[in-house]
Design a protein around this nucleic acid. Sequence first.
DNA 1: AGTGGCTCCTGAGCGC
DNA 2: TGCGCTCAGGAGCCAC
Length: 297
Amino acid sequence: MGGDEAVWGIVLGVWASPVPELPEVETVRRDLVSLIAGKKISDVIIRDRRVLEGFGPRGGPRRAVRAGEFTRALVGRTVRDVLRRGKYLIFDVGEDLSFLAHLRMTGRLVVGPVAADARAHFAFEEMSQVLSFSDTRRFGELWLAKDWRRDPSIAALGPEPLDESFDASAWGRDLRRSGAKMQSALLDQKRMAGLGNIYVTEALFLSGIRPTRRARTLKSSQILPLIENIRRVLQEGLSHRGVSFRDYRDARGQRGQARDRLLVYGKAKSPCPRCNTLFRGLKVSGRGTVYCPKCQK
DNA sequence: AGTGGCTCCTGAGCGC
DNA sequence: TGCGCTCAGGAGCCAC
């Protein structure tokens, strides 16, 4: 961890530990397409088999994984493409098979020398560098799917906010029928895929909506601006290659620069740039958020 | 339907 | 200096 990050934690008065969201995962995806698309997998090393098991009820393993099954299924396959749905990465290795990755909180997928802390890594033919999956907190997962669109995690996801086909009016109607608080509503991956705490917090600030505001109390005139602001913060994150506080890195191991663009996230007790009122931090349904008590209603 | 609480895990902050 | 406690958080699942 770099010293500047520690200083930031102190300056902000909050130890923000954000995790990869849509812009960060999309940045990794784009990097991976240029780095490994078309490459043939020559070996898969699983150093920590829990990376394949995931978490089920009471934290137990979600899937039974036979030793070697994952490796045998993938060796000799070519990575045809790398796709993204929400915060999930999908490695297309054939009509009949994909492998999926979720970085959860601290996961990294980096192409380079084998990472010292890699839980797993993939080697490719005619390529000296490997794809390492490192993950300090070990919440991340890798798993196989015959048809990724039918994978239960993927199938449950809501629409992609940056898709051209995103149906704003249907989404708005659905949102305004929900009794959930806005912070929870936007974090719900079934309602919209890809948002996490950072971008939800930023989008609500830009929209003048309190995190605790009930979705069904929004005016219909607030829906389109909200969607525009969600898209704006996601695009801003994307164009600066994601927000790095502590753990996030792109697939080349580089930090993203979008942290400098954040207006509210992690800035509790700082003055609002619009009205100078001090931002307030609070928990909404177990999630930390920050808002301006004057600008956000 | 929404929420709270719990699980996985580890490192940072903090009280003493 | 260092130990032990608390907290954070994505997703899944359960209870209310």
